[in-house]
Design a protein around this nucleic acid. Structure first.
Lengths: 342, 342
DNA sequence: CGGAGTTCCGAAAACGTTTTCGGCCATGCT
DNA sequence: AGCATGGCCGAAAACGTTTTCGGAACTCCG
C-alpha cells in the first residue's frame, strides 16, 4: 500500500540528514538537555527541511500519552451537548490535543462499546457530556484515565462534575423582574422530569418567597419544551389570571410561543407583560418579537472549563466534587419597568 | 504513572495463559488460518478471560491502518455541518471506526494545522465538511490519504464531492406549488453570495419558465437567512403584489418570518397564500404556524454516504466527481390547492 | 520403512519512537 | 603528568503488535 506522495519521513531520515543518531535527533527535537547547541540546530534544520512530523502512534505507544481525549455524549443531537462540544473542541485544539468524538445516543450498550474502544485507543482522558442535567451513574469504574463530567452530574462524589447553575440562573431572572417592579409573576416551563426545570423552579420560588410575592397560578406550568406549549400555556394562564405582569419561561422556545400568544391576545410585551426566557439560544431569543431577555448558561464555557480541569488532572492534581458555573442575564427588549399605575 | 486498575493486559499475557506464543495468539485472534481449532479456542478463551483489548496504537504502527478518520469542518457551529457530522459519526461508529473531530472555524491557518496533526496521527481518511456549498480549493494535495468532500464542493474534479441537490430541491418545491394550482409565485431567500441560494433560484426559474409562469416581483428577494428578513420581505412583496398566491422561501427560518407577516397582514396560509420552506429544520418547520411544507436535504444521509464512499476508497476503489443527493418534499399544512376562484 | 506432503507452531524481524547508560573527548585541577 | 569532571553523543533496549519463514510433527502412500 504505497502512500500516494510524501513517503512518510521518519526520525531516521532526519538523523541521517543531520548526521547524528536517532537518539540525538529525538533529544534535539524534544528540547532535552545533553545536546550541543550546534547539533540541535542541525537537527532542527534537517527536520524542517524534510517536513518531519513525528509518528504519534509510536510516541503514544512508548509514553502512554496519546494527546487525545474521548468526548462521550449521550445525545449529541440534543440542545445542550453541542455547545459544550464546541467549547471543548476549541480548548483541546489550543492545547494540541485531539478529540475522539463518540455519541452513545442514549444507548447503554453503545456507550459501553465506545468506552472500550476509547480505552483501547489509549485516550488520555474522558469528557462525558450529559444530555440532561440529571444525576447519572458514574462511568469512572470502567475507565482507567481521568474523567470529567459536564452538564450531567455523576452520582459518585469522587468524580468531578461541572454543571450549569440552574437555580442561580432562575434567581437572576426573578430578581430582575422584581427589580423592574413586577409583582404578579408566572412561570411556564418544560417537563418536570428534567432536573433543570425543577432547579429553576426552586430558584424562582426562593426569590418570590423572600419578596413576599406569590407565584401566579400557585404552581409552575410544566409542559413540553416547545413553542406550542408556550402558546397554549399562555392562553390558559391569562384567561385565569388576566392581571399577570410578568412571565418567566423555562426556555427561549417556550418564551417565543408565549410572545406569540400575548401578541394574539393583544398584550404588549414588555409594557403589559414582561417576558424572560432561558438558554439565550440566539436563534430564538434574538429573533423573537420582541427580542428576549434571557439567561445565558454559557455552555461553551462549560466545555472549556471541563478541558482545563481535565488537563489539570492529567498533570496530577485531580479535583472532585461539583462545580456550578453561574449563568448571566442577557437583557433585551422583552423586559422593562412596570408601568406605574396603581 | 500506575494505571488505577486493569494493568493493561497485553497479547503476551494472553499467549502465556493460553500456553502459546504471541505469534500464534495474534493469528488466532485475527482469524488467520494456520492455527488449529483447539488452539484457537484456547486463545480466545484466554483473551476473553483477561478482557484483552489489542493496543490499537501498536497495530496502527505496523499496519498503517489506525481505524480513525479525520472530520474537518469549516464551521461546526453553522447550520449545516452538524447534521452531516451526526450522520458520519453514526456510520463510522457502525464500522468500528473513530472520528477525530476538528473545527477550523473558517481559519486557513488553523485548517492547515489540523491537517498536519491529523496526518501525523495517521488517520485512514478525511471527511471535509464545508459550511456553505460553494466550490472551495482542494485540500487533497496536502493529504496522503483518501478525502471525501461533503456539502462544500472541491474545485478539483479528481476529488469526490457529495452535495445536496439544491437545484433539484427547488424544482420539487416549485412543481408542488404549480400542481396545487398556484400561478403567482414569489421567492424570498437568503444572501446571493451563497451558491445554495443561487442554485435554488435556478431550479425555480426553470420550472416557472417551462410552465410559462412569471416569478412575481420579477426577481428573487435576496436578503439574510433570518426570520426578520422574511417578515420584512413579505411586507414589501405583498404591498407591491397583493395578488401573490404562493411564496417559496430559501429557508424555514425565512418562511417562519413570512408566515408571521402574512398572519399580521390578515392573509391566511395556505388558503390565500401557500408557503414552502427549505431545510426541514424541525425546530422551525414543525413549530411554525401553520407547520411548513418544506424541502428536506437529508444532510444526515449526506454524512452517511460520505463515510460509505470513504470506506470504499480505503478498500481501493476510489470514485471521483460530484454526487448530488436529491432532497425530498415534506408536505405539511402550509400548502394546499388554490381556492377555485377566477 | 522411507519419502513427500500437510498442518501447525514459534523465533525473530519489523514498525518509529523515547530513554537509559556507557563511552569518548576535552577541560580543569593538583 | 595524572586524574577527576562534565559535556556530548550513540548503541541498544523497550513498547505491543503483525508477519515471515523455518522447522517439527504428523499423515499418507508406495
Amino acid at each position: 500500500m504505497p502512500r500516494p506522495h510524501s513517503q512518510t519521513v521518519t526520525l531516521t531520515d532526519v538523523a541521517r540528514l543531520a548526521r547524528v543518531s536517532v537518539a540525538t535527533a529525538s533529544k534535539a527535537l524534544n528540547d532535552r538537555a545533553e545536546v550541543a547547541p550546534e547539533t540541535r540546530r542541525r537537527v532542527l534544520r534537517a527536520a524542517k527541511e524534510l517536513e518531519f512530523q513525528p509518528n504519534i502512534l509510536a510516541r503514544g505507544l512508548i509514553l502512554g500519552r496519546t494527546g487525545t481525549v474521548g468526548l462521550l455524549t449521550d445525545e449529541l443531537a440534543g440542545r445542550f451537548a453541542f455547545p459544550v462540544l464546541l467549547g471543548a473542541e476549541n480548548a483541546l485544539g489550543n492545547s494540541q490535543m485531539s478529540v475522539l468524538l463518540c455519541d452513545a445516543r442514549g444507548d447503554a450498550i453503545r456507550r459501553r462499546h465506545y468506552i472500550r474502544t476509547l480505552v483501547a485507543r489509549h485516550v488520555d482522558g474522558f469528557i462525558v457530556v450529559g444530555d440532561r442535567n440529571d444525576v447519572r451513574p458514574s462511568l469512572s469504574r470502567d475507565i482507567p484515565v481521568p474523567v470529567v463530567y459536564v452538564y450531567g452530574e455523576s452520582d459518585d462524589p469522587d468524580d468531578l462534575s461541572i454543571l450549569a447553575d440552574d437555580r442561580g440562573g432562575a434567581v437572576l431572572a426573578a430578581e430582575h423582574l422584581i427589580s423592574l417592579g413586577r409583582r404578579r409573576i408566572a412561570h411556564i416551563t418544560g417537563e418536570e422530569a428534567y432536573r433543570a426545570a425543577r432547579d429553576r423552579v426552586t430558584g424562582l420560588r426562593s426569590v418570590l418567597d423572600d419578596a413576599g410575592l406569590p407565584l401566579m397560578g400557585d404552581r409552575p406550568f410544566y409542559g413540553e419544551w416547545t413553542q406550542r406549549w408556550g402558546r397554549q400555556a399562555a392562553h390558559i394562564l391569562l384567561s385565569a389570571h388576566p392581571d399577570i405582569d410578568a412571565i418567566f419561561c423555562g426556555s427561549d422556545q417556550i418564551a417565543t410561543g408565549v410572545a406569540d400568544a400575548l401578541h394574539d391576545l393583544g398584550r404588549r410585551v414588555p409594557h403589559d407583560v414582561a417576558l424572560v426566557g432561558y438558554d439565550n439560544w440566539e436563534l430564538f431569543a434574538a429573533e423573537c418579537r420582541p427580542p428576549l431577555t434571557t439567561v445565558d448558561l454559557n455552555l461553551q464555557q462549560l466545555g472549556t472549563d471541563a478541558v482545563a480541569h481535565l488537563l489539570e488532572a492529567l498533570d496530577g492534581d485531580r479535583r472532585t466534587g461539583i462545580i456550578r458555573q453561574p449563568g448571566r442575564l442577557i437583557i433585551r427588549d422583552s423586559t422593562a419597568p412596570a408601568s406605574t399605575r396603581p
